[in-house]
C-alpha cells in the first residue's frame, strides 16, 4: 500500500551548493536510482503514490547560480530552480511571452507554483504539462549539463513520450533559454480542464508572426492530445504566407484538430477532445493574431 501521508522509503539526500558538486554526484551515482529535486511537486507525489524507488536525492535549490533569471535582447535565460510563481510575477514574461505567462497561471495553485519549476515541468514530460506548448512555440532550448560538458536541445526534441525525455542520468537541465520574439508577433495559450487549476484536457499555445495582413510564420502546439506535446505542422503550413481571415483561421483550426491523436482517459474522450481542439485553436488563433497587431475581417 502506498501512503500519501509519509515517504516510506529511505534514501540518501544531498544538497550541493555548486553546480559542479551536483554534477559530480550525478555522475557518481549515474548507475543507481538517483533523482533530482527541484520543486518536488511531481517527484514527491510519484514517490508517495507510485512507490518510485530512489536511492539518492539531489536537491538543486541550494545552488545559487540555478536561481537566476537573466534577460537581455537575445531573450530569457531561466535558472533551473526558479519557481514558476516568480516567473508569472515578471512583467517581461507577461508582456513578451503571454502564452508562457498564461500557461503558468493556468497551472495548479499558487502554493504549487511557489514550488514548481520550468525544468521540473518539462522533465516530468507529462503530455499535459502546461508550460510545454508555450515553450515549444517560443522555440525554447534547454541547457543540459553534465560533468562532461553541456548541450543545447530544443524542448521539442527533448521530449520523447509520456515521462520520457532524452536526458541521461548524469545530466541535468540547468537553464531554459527562450529567444526574444520578434516585435510583430503574438502568442496565446488556452486550456480546458474540468475545473480551474486542474490537469488539462487540452492545452495549446500558438505563436504567429505578422507581416501586414499576412501571417509570416506560425507555430501551433497542442498538449494532452498525444504522448507528448504535438506540433500541428500542416495547420501551420496552411497559415504561413497567407492573408489572415476568419475563414482561414477556421480552416486552420479544423486542420489542427485533424492532426491530433488524442486518447480516451478519465478526463475526456478522444472525440470530445477533437471537437474541443478545433474550437480552442480557432479562438486562440484569433487572440494571437490580435496580439500580433493583426485585424480580422469577414
Amino acid at each position: 500500500m502506498s501512503t500519501s501521508r509519509l515517504l516510506t522509503q529511505e534514501f540518501e539526500y544531498f544538497a550541493p551548493h555548486t553546480l559542479k558538486e551536483a554534477l559530480d554526484l550525478l555522475y557518481k551515482y549515474k548507475d543507481e536510482e538517483v533523482k533530482i529535486l527541484a520543486g518536488g511537486t511531481d517527484l514527491l507525489v510519484k514517490m508517495k503514490t507510485l512507490d518510485m524507488k530512489i536511492d539518492y536525492l539531489i536537491n538543486l535549490k541550494e545552488i545559487p547560480e540555478l536561481k537566476a533569471v537573466e534577460t537581455n535582447n537575445q531573450g530569457l535565460k531561466i535558472g533551473a530552480t526558479v519557481p514558476l510563481s516568480q516567473l508569472e510575477r515578471r512583467e517581461i514574461i507577461k508582456e513578451k511571452y503571454p502564452a508562457l505567462y498564461e500557461g503558468i497561471k493556468s497551472m495548479a495553485a499558487i502554493a504549487i507554483r511557489n514550488m514548481a519549476t520550468l525544468p521540473g515541468n518539462i522533465c516530468n514530460a507529462s503530455p499535459a504539462g502546461d508550460t510545454i506548448p508555450p515553450l515549444m512555440v517560443y522555440e525554447a532550448q534547454l541547457r543540459i549539463v553534465s560533468k562532461e560538458g553541456e548541450r543545447l536541445v530544443p524542448v521539442e526534441d527533448f521530449l520523447r513520450g509520456v515521462g520520457e525525455t532524452i536526458i541521461r542520468k548524469e545530466e541535468l537541465v540547468s537553464q531554459v533559454i527562450i529567444p526574444a520574439p520578434p516585435s510583430n508577433s503574438g502568442s496565446a495559450f488556452s486550456k480546458k480542464s474540468r475545473v480551474k487549476a486542474d490537469i488539462a484536457k487540452i492545452n495549446l499555445a500558438i505563436w504567429l508572426e505578422r507581416e501586414g495582413k499576412t501571417c509570416k510564420d506560425a507555430r501551433i502546439v497542442l498538449g494532452s492530445v498525444f504522448i507528448k506535446a504535438l506540433r500541428a505542422k500542416r495547420a501551420e503550413g496552411l497559415l504561413k504566407g497567407e492573408m489572415v481571415s476568419k475563414e482561414l483561421l477556421t480552416q486552420v483550426a479544423r486542420q489542427a484538430a485533424e492532426e491530433i491523436k488524442p486518447i480516451d482517459d478519465v478526463r475526456s474522450t478522444a472525440e470530445y477532445r477533437t471537437t474541443l481542439a478545433r474550437v480552442m485553436v480557432e479562438d486562440t488563433l484569433k487572440l494571437a493574431w490580435e496580439r500580433a497587431g493583426g485585424e480580422l475581417e469577414g
Partner: peptide, 27 residues
C-alpha cells in the same frame, strides 16, 4: 490529501505559501 491537491497543509516558507505535504523537512 498528501499529494498537493487540496491546500490544507499550506504553510508559508519564507513568506510564500507552499505545501508542507510535498516538502521534505530537510530542505
Amino acid at each position: 490529501c498528501g499529494i498537493g491537491e487540496c491546500g490544507a497543509c499550506t504553510v508559508l516558507l519564507d513568506g510564500e505559501p507552499v505545501l508542507s505535504c510535498l516538502t521534505l523537512a530537510i530542505t
